[in-house]
Design a protein around this nucleic acid. Structure first.
Lengths: 213, 213
DNA sequence: GGTTAATTCGGTATAATTACCGATTTTAGG
DNA sequence: CCTAAAATCGGTAATTATACCGAATTAACC
């Protein structure tokens, strides 16, 4: 029988080991390669790529969702399962649009991860129950916001990072050679998109969503 | 030869597996027990405890530093090594005062973790280089703040959590039956203690330090 | 019981953010 | 080339947060 080939991307060596061990215990799957960064993965994929990629969404250099988008365009054969800590459900919507096939929490029981790999390999979608539940909750709670995409623009991300760095609007304006008014507009859009009412909530949610740090 | 007995506490099963595998590969150490929560660990320690405890500082229910304090009072024989993602160095000062013997990053190379266990077992202190470097940097940069303890009071933590929840000062005051003025004082103290100048920076740093979420 | 830290509250002033109304120009993609 | 999204900028008003002066009460600890 052809084994399911799985590659892993995570910046934590410990998580990589844990996943590797977990997968190699199964008879119908094998680990192809371990990757520690998005750059490394992109290079490695030029030579060879797996059936399934387990992708940590929290990465230091590149945003997980950006990488997912690149990969699903360049390597649509590779089925991507996202590993995340997030319990914010609406984030999945964007990811699913990026071609993600599965979404599980890092804190999941081990068998769930194995199940997810098999399901996605069969061509199914696999969303962690905990998340699916919350997603429904969320949809019910927020009707007015449901067709608003959560993808941040380049400028918005830039400004978000500066807000997190303790900058005031004026300081951001100076830094980016913009008027304070422009910065405020972007701040407002950030608050709207993330559905929070001030900067404290913005930063909190941004980190939870993996948009920051 | 007597093996070094190591117990592990982390809320992520994957990290636990990774650590377990890593430690059991070494001939001079063994894993005593895996713990998934602070409560579970405290109960288990009543019967038996290890030489070394690898303690994740990011825990859902109990604060890592609080647990460390409890443990070092109740079980001073157990040497604690903290595992963390933090690159904020001044946090260690408090931890070291709580009786912590080692401090390493989750993203460390695997051999570092093994080294740390051996060093701490010999009675040495082991601080991750990356952190030690930053700690010195930080000391140089911030002289005026160096004798200010970073431990937050109960009330401050309470208010910090509400700030992160998008509450305004007035809403917090209502929630806790306080005057707005009191809330503002606490907010100010939070800004001072964490050395940031607004709520956005406060939340960012609090999360980095493991004080939130 | 005495000392220290924590918590509570007041006023005033300034700075910063957020909420509204708006608009034009630039960029990216089909 | 055309269209939609993104990025840019203005003014005003209201709300919030922060910076300063201060101090009294309560809780915790030795």
């Amino acid at each position: 029988m052809q084994k399911i080939l799985v590659s892993l991307l995570d910046d934590h060596p410990l998580i990589l080991s844990g996943l590797q061990q977990l997968i190699e215990q199964e008879e119908d799957m094998d680990v192809l390669e371990l990757h520690h960064s998005g750059q490394e993965l992109l290079k490695a994929f030029e030579n060879n790529y797996p059936d399934i990629l387990l992708l940590d969404i929290h990465l230091p250099e590149i945003q997980g969702d950006e990488l997912a988008l690149i990969l699903s365009k360049k390597y649509p054969q590779v089925k991507i399962i996202v590993l995340s800590n997030l319990d914010y459900p609406y984030y999945i919507k964007n990811l699913l649009q990026s071609g993600i096939k599965g979404y599980i929490l890092k804190s999941s029981k081990k068998y769930k991860i194995i199940d997810a790999i098999r399901a996605v390999h069969r061509g199914e979608q696999y969303i962690d129950d905990a998340i699916a539940d919350k997603a429904n909750e969320y949809k019910r709670a927020l009707k007015h916001n449901q067709n608003q995409p959560l993808l941040l623009t380049k400028r918005e991300k830039e400004i978000l990072h500066l807000i997190a760095k303790d900058y005031t609007s004026l300081e951001i304006a100076d830094e980016l050679y913009l008027s304070k008014r422009t910065v405020d507009t972007h701040r407002n859009n950030l608050l709207l998109k993330l559905d929070v009412k001030n900067s404290a909530g913005l930063i909190k949610k941004a980190i939870d969503l993996g948009l920051l740090k």
